[in-house]
Design a protein around this nucleic acid. Structure first.
Lengths: 188, 188
DNA sequence: TGAATTATTGACTAAATGGTCATAAACTGA
DNA sequence: TCAGTTTATGACCATTTAGTCAATAATTCA
């Protein structure tokens, strides 16, 4: 019908996401996004809208890829306790590697942007609900009661998010390990 | 010896802190700080240095006032379990009030700034260490073993920080209540 | 009083910000 | 081939940014 796109949208969104992930929303400039995407400003705006729309697209991409990967991990092999353990081990691993400073984009968005931004808040709430549901599912064999599982899942999400703050603030990995161990104790 | 300051430094720092607390570091402009402080730009720079120095001063002020208030709460009356409960109840209360959107400045700094800023990271680490030490102290009657108390305190800090993310992301207060209840279960 | 010192004031700046737009280019179907 | 449609390009813009500075004012000590 017309001139085709010269880039792969998903690949570009991945690059945009990485910038927001590492630098945060406010600290990211259009110049950064232009540089990372390889596109020119006009194309970026044409394809993804303004900075705010690009951020939302990045959040949704994070949900579809990274959060989904976590959910897949929760659906893998093992006992409920082993499944939850994997969640925390992933944080410990990335702390030890210590190269990528982004932490968890969902947590970053929640603290930096969500409180002042309705659309971001909605996106964050949706993703947290999805994550929590997957945890409830993972707990099912050990905690068949739905209400109990929901309550325990809320707690696990809190503790998990807390480790992301500690990790990014430079706390020792032992604090994260301790959190993990105490969490696992509450799973029957 | 010379012309005296026309303002109270502590009062001004309190106002600067409130801006950073509510808006975050990057989203706060010098214009905001000038407006909130009531001073003019030159005076602000003269008294507190540049934006970054003002942020550090705000963080230290937060430690001296709000974190200290938390520590005082932990040193008050009651069993260890009651003391820790107060920490979470405070989060639940401010969620229910729902007026001030700042959450916890320490958490905000940890996620938004610490990873990319050595000085902020140092400040954050120091404050977290102070908070953790107070929790260990509060746990002492129930967990006299120092290593066990340290491990449990790490976990409590994580869970507590996690609730601050949930609260700011718009999660229901029930999730925070659930976190609180599960945490308390791990205190003998 | 007057020298010395520090604080206040607000105009000023250079750079960066997010965002737009007219033009040229690439593609499709008729 | 050519009209119609979408994309790419980069120059352009108003605004905002953090930060400076020279002039003036207020204070103290001698």
């Amino acid at each position: 019908m017309a001139r085709p796109r010269e880039f792969d949208e998903q690949q570009v969104i991945e690059k945009l996401m990485n910038v927001f992930w590492e630098k945060g929303y406010e600290a990211t400039s259009m110049k950064d996004l232009v540089a990372a995407s390889g596109l020119l400003k006009g194309s970026l705006y044409g394809a993804f809208g303004d900075k705010h729309a690009q951020y939302l697209a990045a959040l949704r991409h994070y949900d579809r890829t990274r959060i989904q990967a976590g959910i897949d991990m929760l659906r893998g092999e093992g006992t409920p306790r082993q499944k939850i353990a994997r969640l925390f081990d992933h944080v410990i691993d990335s702390t030890k590697k210590g190269i990528f400073a982004g932490g968890c984009l969902l947590c970053n968005a929640s603290l930096e942007v969500a409180a002042m931004d309705r659309e971001v808040k909605t996106e964050v709430k949706t993703t947290i609900r999805r994550l929590k549901a997957a945890i409830i599912e993972a707990l099912q064999p050990a905690v068949p009661n739905e209400e109990q599982a929901g309550s325990l899942a809320s707690f696990i999400v809190s503790a998990y998010f807390g480790t992301r703050i500690l990790a990014k603030g430079g706390a020792p990995a032992a604090m994260i390990g301790a959190t993990r161990d105490h969490c696992l104790r509450l799973i029957p």
